[in-house]
């Protein structure tokens, strides 16, 4: 039993241990290698890090439930971009001209609805056709991105609303608006996955679909709901990010799906479904952001950052595998 608990602790706690190591490494290395005088663990720097984690982090929470459920969603980057276009474009629609600043909640709602709708399309196709989610969302990734380009061609969609920018740049209790959104999404999703019937069933379906069906669980509707959740979160991520930036390029959000999946996998969620946790995903998101920021801090360029993250991802998954197989052997005794 004790061995089992130990390996469980290592497994669940590994990502946080990794974060601590990163913090120490970059603080020390920063002393010698950094170009700036500021310490790496400077409060402002850390607050900024949390804020920058939000766009990927919010989507990663949705990806966790999708992957625990045994699916995957490659279209989140495209949903992110299309929702952003709807958000910024609708701010200037003439029908809403009389609303003044009240156009903001309307545009937000439109953007979020776009996300939910696109997610529902994914979920519905996966449910009704039985085609693997990887293939379905690979197709919709291309299709949704196509819609983004059809909307405004190659030109960026821009609209700067200063009320919106003020809101997005605000800090409450020291944390940025984006950070608050990430925190709330994390909390709600954690509650959903650990305390609700839907969350419980998501684990059951991902772990053993046949057994779930035999227990009378309606697998299709659960998958549909999960795709709607991740669609909503991809749109929410766009809302948070573009409220501040005010301009969306049609290529924005590309490769987001891969960053999100990297964070979720780094957090220990199984690609095959059935296991994973929201808290560990948060760890995965922060670990990646720390790495990007830390490597930047000590003067590495973007290509080096990508190389290092790739190597670390493989190394972490290899370690995880070692830990897991070891744990299993011990339990057999």
């Amino acid at each position: 039993m004790e061995a089992g608990n130990l390996s469980k602790f290592l497994k669940n706690g590994a990502i946080w241990g990794f974060i601590v190591i990163e913090l120490i490494f970059f603080s020390v290395a920063g002393e010698f290698m950094s170009l700036s005088d500021k310490a790496f663990m400077d409060v402002d720097n850390m607050l900024l890090l949390l804020k920058q984690s939000a766009p990927i982090g919010i989507i990663a929470m949705g990806m966790t439930i999708i992957m625990v459920n045994g699916n995957i969603d490659l279209s989140v980057g495209a949903i992110f971009a299309l929702s952003a276009v709807i958000l910024l474009d609708s701010l200037t629609w003439t029908v809403f001209a009389g609303l003044g600043d009240w156009v903001i909640p309307v545009s937000w709602a439109l953007a979020l609805l776009t996300g939910v709708g696109l997610g529902a399309i994914n979920g519905f196709i996966v449910w009704k056709t039985g085609v693997d989610a990887f293939i379905v969302t690979l197709g919709s990734m291309l299709g949704f991105r196509g819609l983004v380009f059809m909307y405004n061609g190659e030109t960026p969609t821009s609209s700067l609303n200063w009320t919106l920018v003020d809101f997005a740049e605000a800090q409450f209790l020291g944390l940025h608006t984006a950070t608050w959104f990430l925190a709330i999404v994390t909390l709600v999703m954690w509650y959903l996955m650990t305390r609700t019937v839907h969350g419980r069933n998501a684990y059951a379906i991902g772990d053993n679909r046949d057994a779930a069906v035999n227990a009378g669980i309606k697998v299709g509707p659960h998958m549909l709901i999960n795709f709607m959740i991740i669609g909503f979160l991809a749109a929410l991520s766009a809302v948070v990010f573009y409220s501040e930036s005010g301009s969306v390029n049609p290529n924005d959000g590309q490769l987001y799906e891969l960053w999100v999946i990297t964070a979720v996998v780094l957090g220990g969620t199984k690609l095959t479904g059935g296991a994973g946790s929201i808290v560990s995903t948060l760890g995965g998101v922060l670990a990646i952001q720390l790495l990007r920021k830390g490597l930047g801090h000590i003067g590495a360029d973007t290509s080096t950052v990508n190389l290092v993250i790739g190597l670390i991802l493989i190394a972490v998954l290899f370690l995880d595998r070692q830990l897991n197989t070891k744990g299993k052997e011990e339990l057999k005794l």
Partner: peptide, 26 residues
């Protein structure tokens, strides 16, 4: 293969078909 969710605990497996009925709301 068809009866149990092996990665889940004993209680959750036992109540799997009726979590919905036992629950209060969601």
């Amino acid at each position: 293969g068809q009866g149990l969710v092996l990665g889940m605990n004993c209680r959750d497996n036992m109540t799997l078909p009726q979590v919905g009925e036992l629950s209060s709301g969601p």
